[in-house]
Each structure stands twice: as C-alpha cells, then as structure tokens.
C-alpha cells in the first residue's frame, strides 16, 4: 500500500512538473531574446552609441535629437497615412469580399484561393512586381501608350507626394484576401438559426448584416486590426522593394529609418531611440485595445 501511494505521488508530481519542464526552455529563450533585447535596446537609446554599442549613459538626449530630424517626422507622417489607409481599406475590401463569397455562390472553392494567394507571396515579391507594374516607362502607363491611349498618365511611384499611396496599393493587394478569409471564417461561425429568426421577423438583408452579422464579427475585427496594425508598423521589406524609400526620402517609414540610422549611418543611439518610440506606439494602441476586448469577454 505505501509503495503504491508513493508511486501515485511520484506520478502526480511528474504530471505537475512535465509541462513546466517542457515550457521552461522556450520561456527562457523568450525572456532573453525578446524581453532581454527590448531592455537592451531601451538602454542603448540612452547611450552615445555610434558604430558599436557603447555604455556611456547620456539620458534622453537621443530622443530630443530624433524629433529634431526632419527625416523622422517624414517617417511618422508617412506611417500615419500608410497605416490608416491600409487598415481601413483592407478591412472594407476584406469584409465586402467575405460577404459576397458567403452568398452560397457556385465556384467558391475556386474563388477563395484566388483572393488568398497574394498572401503566400513575400512582400519583396509583391514590391518588385508592383514596382514594374507602376513604373511609367515599363508598366501600366507604357502599355496604355502602346495601345494608343497616349494621354494616359499614372506616375504616382515617381511623384514624391503620391508615392506613399503606391505602398498602400501594393500592401492592400497583398493582404485583403487574408482579411477576407478571417471574416469568412467569422461569418461561417454565426448560428444560422439567428439569421433565420431575423428573416422571419422581416429584417431586410441590409439590416440583417448591419444589425446582426457585423456586430457578431467583433472578434474577427479584433484579429484583423491586431494583425494589420503590427504589419503596418513593421513594414520594411515592401518599402525597400517598391520604392527604396524614394523618390528622394519621400516614402521612408519608421522601420526603414530605424535600420538606416542604426546600421548604415553609425548613429545606433538614435536608431535605438526610434525603435523605442515604435515599440511605445504599438503598446499605446494595442494594450488598451486588447485589454478592453479581452477583458470584456471575461465578464
């Protein structure tokens, strides 16, 4: 009897321990390589690091210099334009496509992957393809001229005031299919009985979507927003491939700014400061949003 109970004791203890043992390495890795390096970056942003990390503390001076740089202000304005349009347009197109695909149409199995496939490409491929397509000498404008429509003009990518919108165009093309898939999954999860009951009550199709379906998609909106927002703020490869930050420096975003100041301009302190600002921007928007959304569910 005592042996058996001791064995049982060992087993329960093991059962308690195993999940912790299995999770410990990944927890350690995350602690060091995510939170450890966040802390390191925050520290670097308060040092006079130039080419290599240095540990001479200079306080918040780098932040002052950062906000005095016109290039940083351009990058911030660009981010606001890019993120707002990208998130809004992707959500509208994604939701629209999902609702249209949800009408029990024939060939849905063929149409869905067609919209979803751009997501399978990397941003580098998307950027390069759109760069050629938008180039007035190679792409759309040239083709229209060859077809005889010589007054056709579409040179946004070469225009420093419009180039930021070509980034939105390419990014929306890439991601809206993915947003559609998320909304479609959400739509499929809605109980048909509710919709039938509403129809019996005489709700029109528009009212059905506006009053019942879209409010019930709230979790899908949350996931879409979270994913799109972080993609917008870390956009780097698309800019590099599509415009290279040009014309001039007209399409620099905070991520490209951070890379160039940290690694090519030997101003690691200012680069780290810009990274900290990016982190704080994400945190300032995401934490309250996640808190309210996830907290609301618990109640």
């Amino acid at each position: 009897m005592p042996i058996q109970s001791r064995q049982a004791d060992l087993r329960t203890r093991l059962q308690d321990l195993i999940p912790k043992i299995v999770l410990a390495p990944s927890l350690a890795v995350v602690l060091i390589f995510v939170y450890g390096f966040i802390a390191f970056t925050v520290y670097l942003s308060m040092t006079d690091s130039k080419m290599l990390p240095s540990f001479d503390f200079i306080g918040l001076e780098n932040f002052g210099r950062l906000f005095a740089l016109p290039a940083w202000n351009t990058a911030l304005v660009n981010l606001v334009i890019f993120a707002t349009l990208y998130i809004a347009i992707c959500t509208v197109i994604g939701l629209g496509l999902a609702i249209l695909l949800d009408q029990k149409i024939r060939g849905e199995g063929v149409l869905r992957p067609i919209y979803l496939y751009p997501m399978a490409l990397s941003f580098i491929v998307t950027g390069t393809a759109w760069k050629w397509f938008l180039d007035p000498g190679l792409g759309l404008e040239n083709t229209m001229h060859l077809w005889g429509w010589t007054s056709f003009e579409f040179n946004w990518i070469k225009d420093r005031n419009m180039a930021i919108y070509t980034l939105v165009l390419a990014a929306v093309w890439q991601t809206s299919g993915f947003v559609m898939a998320m909304f479609l999954a959400g739509l499929r999860g809605i109980d048909n009985e509710i919709l039938k009951a509403a129809q019996i009550d005489g709700a029109s199709n528009v009212a059905l979507y506006r009053r019942i379906v879209i409010p019930m998609l709230r979790p899908a909106f949350l996931s879409a927003f979270v994913i799109l927002f972080h993609m917008a703020i870390k956009s780097y490869d698309l800019v590099i491939a599509l415009t290279g930050g040009g014309p001039g420096r007209a399409t620099e975003l905070p991520a490209t700014f951070m890379y160039s100041y940290t690694f090519t301009r030997n101003s690691m302190g200012i680069g780290a400061a810009s990274a900290v600002i990016m982190l704080m921007t994400v945190a300032a928007i995401m934490i309250p949003y996640l808190y309210s959304e996830l907290g609301a569910k618990k109640e």
């Binding site: 130039k50 016109p70 420093r160 040009g246 014309p247 001039g248 160039s260 090519t264 301009r265 030997n266």
Partner: peptide
Amino acid sequence: AVKNAIYDVVTAHFN
C-alpha cells in the same frame, strides 16, 4: 552620419 545627412538634403532638393 554627416555623409547621409548631406545625401538627405541633396536628394530632397533634386526631387
């Protein structure tokens, strides 16, 4: 750092 600062101005002016 100076080189790139000059790049910024020259290229912005050229554009």
